[in-house]
């Protein structure tokens, strides 16, 4: 377990690029960052000129040792923090960071059992850290990702997930608009989809589900109904602010 550094650290924005029309990858240089496990998160604290502070938790897209962390942030229209991080934070600007945090929604290289990852929207971010780690340690544990999106334009890290060297296969699913020639029509993930596109209970997988609360509720309930034991399903929900 990578334990958090004491207190708040200062992160300076080192690199940034758009992920979609509403989302951005931001990489911070963080002196004192002890490295992190795949799936851990970080608390980001902003302080305004009048002293008002806002703290939000974000999953980390990067993993391993080193003094840099990459986040993938989606702009929430009514958000207090995400619009600033997506639209306004400039290279060299600083934020306060607390972490790395969490040890439950984590995948470690020594894990050998099959792994099914299920992402809704920007919930893919911790899975980017897991698939990167899976590739970098040449893990022999089977790992695959089911990625549910509104439209093809909403994909985070599509090139990275699609490249031939990716060791975890990605199955794409669309809820609002499908690409031309797509075999399934647009619609929310159903128990039937999960049955045909995820590892079955017989393979005793560990299943990680990350996305908005409603998505996680629906998917984890369907997985249980397909015969997965509740303790083999790990969830990470994110709220609407």
């Amino acid at each position: 377990m990578t334990t958090p550094a004491a207190g708040w650290l200062t992160g300076s924005l080192a690199r940034a690029h758009p992920l979609t029309a509403s989302a951005r990858s931001i990489t911070f240089t963080v002196p004192g960052w002890p490295g992190n496990d795949a799936g851990q998160h970080v608390d980001v604290r902003l302080t305004s000129s009048d002293g008002y502070q806002a703290v939000r938790s974000y999953s980390i897209a990067s993993a391993g040792p080193g003094g840099e962390i990459e986040l993938g942030i989606d702009r929430l229209p009514d958000g207090e923090v995400s619009p600033f991080l997506v639209d306004d934070l400039a290279l060299g600007d600083t934020v306060e960071l607390r972490g790395p945090l969490g040890g439950w929604f984590v995948w470690r290289p020594e894990q050998t059992q099959p792994v099914q990852l299920i992402a809704g929207g920007s919930g893919v971010v911790p899975f980017i850290a897991m698939t990167r780690t899976h590739a970098s340690v040449c893990s022999s544990a089977p790992m695959q990702l089911l990625y549910s999106l509104r439209t093809p334009n909403d994909a985070f890290f599509r090139d990275e997930l699609s490249q031939p060297s990716a060791t975890a296969r990605t199955t794409w699913h669309y809820t609002r608009t499908v690409p031309p020639g797509w075999s399934r029509s647009a619609g929310r993930l159903t128990a039937e989809d999960l049955k045909s596109k995820t590892l079955p209970p017989e393979q005793a997988p560990l299943t990680y589900v990350c996305g908005p609360t409603g998505f996680v509720e629906t998917v984890s309930r369907a997985l249980t109904s397909l015969g997965h034991a509740p303790d083999t399903i790990r969830t990470e929900r994110f709220g609407g602010t």
């Binding site: 998160h41 945090l101 709220g239």
Partner: peptide, 24 residues
Amino acid sequence: MDHLDGNVLAGPTADLFLFEPTTT
């Protein structure tokens, strides 16, 4: 109101506990 998972407690409890609460 939407709820989150216990995972989110890791930050607020970091200076309360010596142990990692989310895997406890």
